[in-house]
Simulated assay, not measured.
Amino acid sequence: MGQLVSVDRQGAVATLLLDAPPFNAFDTAMRDALAAAVRDIDADPEVRAVVLTGGEEVFAAGADIGALLAMDFVDIVDWNARLQRTFTAVAELPVPVVAAVNGYALGGGLELALCADYRVAGERAAVGLPEVTLGIMPGSGGTQRLTEIVGRSRAKELIMTGRRVRAAEALGLGIVDEVVPGSSTERAHELAAQLAAGPRLAIRAIKQAVDQAAGARDAGLALERSLIAGLFATPDRTTGMRSFLADGPGRARFE
């Protein structure tokens, strides 16, 4: 499978590539590889912008459901806390992060994309938070960051139904900031290069100031961690995940 996550720096722009085909699913190894890559970027003073991508076919299709099904309450408390911290580390990089979203960005994939400062989607991209179909909820920042973007009512609709949103609708909702024909990778690199050429300290200060407007996000993330852990003790979680593994997404019937 290779190194799961790679960092390639060209000049002042680092490309952070999720590289675990076919779905870039998040398991423990993928989570830890991403955390290490983010630390490397943060420690490199030459990096002035980042392109976050899963490649040309899929951004990331969420967590490894088989691995999640094997976890109980105790397991998920630590595992999800580490994943949430890893995604938050992406959001807190002191340089602009541009996500190039191609194909599916679902579940944890969308939660990761929401950590970027700007999201460029290919016209065939689809995004969503389908965790409810597994009897659980987003646990890596999705309830907080999506709500900041689309508002409470729309966030509830999207998360409670778990529906997939195509690129054009995602643009209208503000989930992505730009949609381009074909692949979004070239446009993401173009924008990252433009940002990297700007005044480094001013751009860092702007990012910090704008992100501060989120205000109470830390408390919301803590609540999210607590709630998703509790859901791992429910029969709905077991039903949803077993149904997903046996029959595919969206097939579970909850009592």
Rank of each mutant, 00 (worst) to 15 (best):
R225G: 09
D64L: 09
R152V: 10
A91M: 11
G162F: 06
G151T: 12
R163K: 13
A246W: 10
L158W: 02
G250C: 09
A43C: 07
F73K: 13
R154W: 00
Q144E: 13
H189A: 06
D117K: 01
I65P: 01
K207F: 02
S226Q: 14
L171N: 00
R119F: 04
Q144Y: 04
L146M: 12
R164K: 11
D27M: 10
Q208N: 10
E157L: 12
G103H: 06
L134N: 10
S140Y: 06
V47W: 00
A125N: 03
D236H: 14
A214C: 05
D19V: 00
M71C: 14
L173A: 04
R225N: 10
G240L: 11
A222E: 11
P21Y: 04
A99L: 04
F26E: 05
T185R: 12
G11W: 09
L231R: 15
V120H: 00
G128F: 06
A25D: 06
S243Q: 09
V165D: 03
D75L: 09
A216F: 10
R48Y: 00
R166P: 05
S6Y: 03
S184I: 08
G66Y: 05
F23Y: 15
A125Y: 04
R187K: 13
V50K: 00
L17S: 11
F73N: 12
A233Q: 13
A63Q: 14
A35C: 13
E148N: 13
Q144L: 02
V179H: 02
D247V: 07
N80A: 08
V179Q: 04
L34M: 15
A252E: 10
T28H: 15
A125E: 03
A105I: 01
A14S: 12
N80H: 09
G142I: 06
I159Y: 02
G139R: 04
A168M: 11
V13Y: 05
L201N: 08
G142Q: 08
C115E: 09
A61T: 10
D19L: 03
Q212Y: 08
L201Q: 10
K156W: 07
V47H: 00
P21I: 01
E92P: 03
A202G: 01
E131Y: 15
V13F: 06
F73E: 15
V13S: 05
D72R: 13
Q208G: 12
I149L: 08
A192K: 01
A12C: 07
A246G: 08
D72N: 15
L223R: 13
A125T: 13
L134W: 15
G162C: 05
R204W: 03
R152G: 11
R124P: 02
V210E: 14
I41M: 01
D44Q: 02
A70M: 14
L129S: 02
C115K: 11
A33V: 10
L112I: 11
M160S: 12
A121L: 07
I175F: 04
G198K: 08
G139W: 03
R237H: 15
D44G: 02
R85Y: 05
R251D: 02
E148R: 14
L52E: 00
R217H: 09
F73A: 14
A214K: 13
E255S: 15
G250P: 06
D78F: 05
G107L: 02
A197R: 07
A193S: 14
G108S: 12
G103S: 07
I41R: 01
